[in-house]
């Protein structure tokens, strides 16, 4: 497949959150604001792209591949954990508010199935450039998914969208117009499950429709 396909598959066809349902823990926990979602997305992007690159470089040489294969899981873990720790430390120093909002989920990027999964499934068997593109696509697809969930949760739960720090979009006017108040439920854990469930259901409905159309087309 060409690079464009390689990149875009992370968004729709193989979206890590909505299609393969990986990395669900942060998706439910930190999506209370759009800012959190974007912050997590940046962290995951950094880790995923670099880990894919490093692992691909390590495995490119057949001799190295032979040596690493028996211990590849520990090697992957060490590399990913190092990258995550770097992100953790840099965030703590320079993006302290985001660090505190994301809390324990920053170190938990280590066990985010997406990163280990891509390392095992793609980066260890592909060229570095392909790996970078794959990583970028997956990370951005994940960020998009996080954004979608947090958009609905924050909008319905709060009436406003926090894009970054002070940059807020206040849509409370819409609520006032419709004479209803924001539904606090969506900011809570309940809302996370509901939003995620409904988005998956919508996607399933769309996919089913497509399949039916394809079947009808074939007939």
């Amino acid at each position: 497949m060409n690079q464009k396909e390689n990149f875009l598959k992370g968004f729709i066809k193989e979206n890590p959150l909505f299609v393969t349902v990986l990395g669900t823990c942060p998706a439910l926990a930190i999506t209370t604001t759009v800012e959190n979602a974007l912050g997590m997305g940046i962290a995951v992007f950094f880790v995923l792209v670099l880990s894919n690159l490093i692992i691909s470089l390590l495995m490119v040489n057949p001799k190295m591949q032979e040596w690493i294969k028996p211990v590849r899981i520990p090697v992957f873990i060490v590399v990913i954990a190092t990258l995550v720790t770097v992100v953790e430390m840099v965030m703590h120093a320079f993006l302290t508010n985001l660090y505190e909002s994301l809390g324990v989920f920053i170190p938990l990027i280590v066990v985010n199935c997406i990163i280990l999964g891509r390392a095992e499934a793609f980066a260890s068997g592909n060229k570095p450039l392909d790996s970078i593109v794959d990583g970028a696509g997956m990370a951005l697809g994940y960020t998009f998914a996080l954004f979608l969930i947090s958009f609905f949760r924050e909008f319905l739960g709060n009436g406003s969208i926090t894009i970054w720090g002070e940059l807020k979009v206040n849509l409370i006017g819409l609520f006032d117009f419709l004479q209803i108040t924001p539904i606090d439920l969506f900011a809570k854990p309940v809302g996370a499950f509901l939003t995620f469930g409904f988005i998956l259901a919508v996607i399933a409905a769309i996919t089913n429709k497509k399949q039916e159309k394809a079947k009808a087309g074939v007939k």
Partner: peptide, 9 residues
């Protein structure tokens, strides 16, 4: 998965 998530909610 979707209905499972609703139940979880």
């Amino acid at each position: 998965v979707p209905i499972a998530l609703i139940v979880a909610a």
